[in-house]
């Protein structure tokens, strides 16, 4: 579906992506692993139309992806749920969710909301609360819910577990899995490589702007190199 071909990107003079090649197929969860500053988030931001490419090509369903601005990318079906959640702090939970379906038919809102409340019942209780008053875990749920409101055909999640308690991370990862099983492919960037690889089908390892390793999730989990570098295990 999404295919990055030799993608380069830079912040000013600093080249961050030095020829990324990456592919996501329908139905997959793909994990993107790497150290801080390796270029994981930049890869997502580039695909979402936030950061411009300086070279290479991004293909989406066989055609070049149009990336003049993030909302245009989103209208083509790719939704990025960025790191840090970025809930609208002074919109209510309900308004936060509805902001995700701007420009989509209103008639589908109710069904989408029901589905999100099935995933995250707590949001239903907090419906009239301001987004900024939610706990970190609730905010992450809201952020994912808001992304789902835009009916993505590819969901990109950046660090969904950041700063959350372990049992909440478990919940969120199981829901990511459910979303995937219901048909949405997911590109997942995670520091928590172990959890990510547990639910992913395939994984890429990115080091200083280049893909150095790609394999199925289970072989990556068992690869010595990955275990040493990203799973924090000693030899």
């Amino acid at each position: 579906m999404l295919k990055l071909e030799n993608v380069h990107a830079a912040y000013g003079p600093v080249e961050v992506l030095k020829g990324i090649n990456l592919e996501i197929n329908p139905g997959e969860i793909v994990a993107l692993l790497g150290a801080n500053g390796a270029g994981k988030s930049t890869t997502l931001l580039t695909s979402a139309g936030v950061v411009a490419t300086t070279g290479g090509q991004i293909w989406w369903e066989g055609k070049p992806l149009l990336r003049p601005s993030p909302d245009v990318v989103l209208r083509q079906g790719i939704c990025l749920c960025p790191e840090g959640r970025h809930i609208f702090p002074r919109l209510t939970v309900k308004e936060n969710l509805l902001s995700g379906s701007y420009l989509l038919p209103k008639s589908r809102d109710a069904a989408k909301l029901d589905r999100i409340f099935d995933f995250f019942p707590v949001l239903k209780e907090r419906l009239q609360q301001l987004g900024g008053t939610l706990s970190g875990g609730e905010q992450q749920m809201l952020a994912i819910g808001r992304s789902l409101m835009s009916e993505p055909r590819l969901l990109m999640l950046d660090e969904p577990s950041l700063g959350l308690a372990p049992q909440i991370v478990q919940r969120i990862f199981s829901i990511i899995q459910t979303i995937n099983k219901e048909g949405t492919p997911i590109l997942l960037v995670e520091q928590n490589a172990r959890e990510a690889l547990r639910i992913a089908h395939r994984g890429y390892v990115i080091v200083t702007g280049e893909i150095v390793l790609t394999d199925t999730a289970s072989s990556l989990l068992n690869s010595d190199e990955v275990r040493r570098a990203y799973l924090g295990e000693d030899e």
């Binding site: 601005s69 993030p70 909302d71 970025h86 609208f88 701007y102 420009l103 992304s147």
Partner: peptide
């Protein structure tokens, strides 16, 4: 209204508003 939500969303976080599909311009 939706456009009202969109306006407030843009005022609070312009980049995020764009990322959820709001045509900021």
């Amino acid at each position: 209204t939706r456009v009202g939500i969109a306006m407030r969303a843009v005022s609070q976080d312009r980049l995020m508003a764009s990322l959820v599909g709001i045509p900021v311009n």
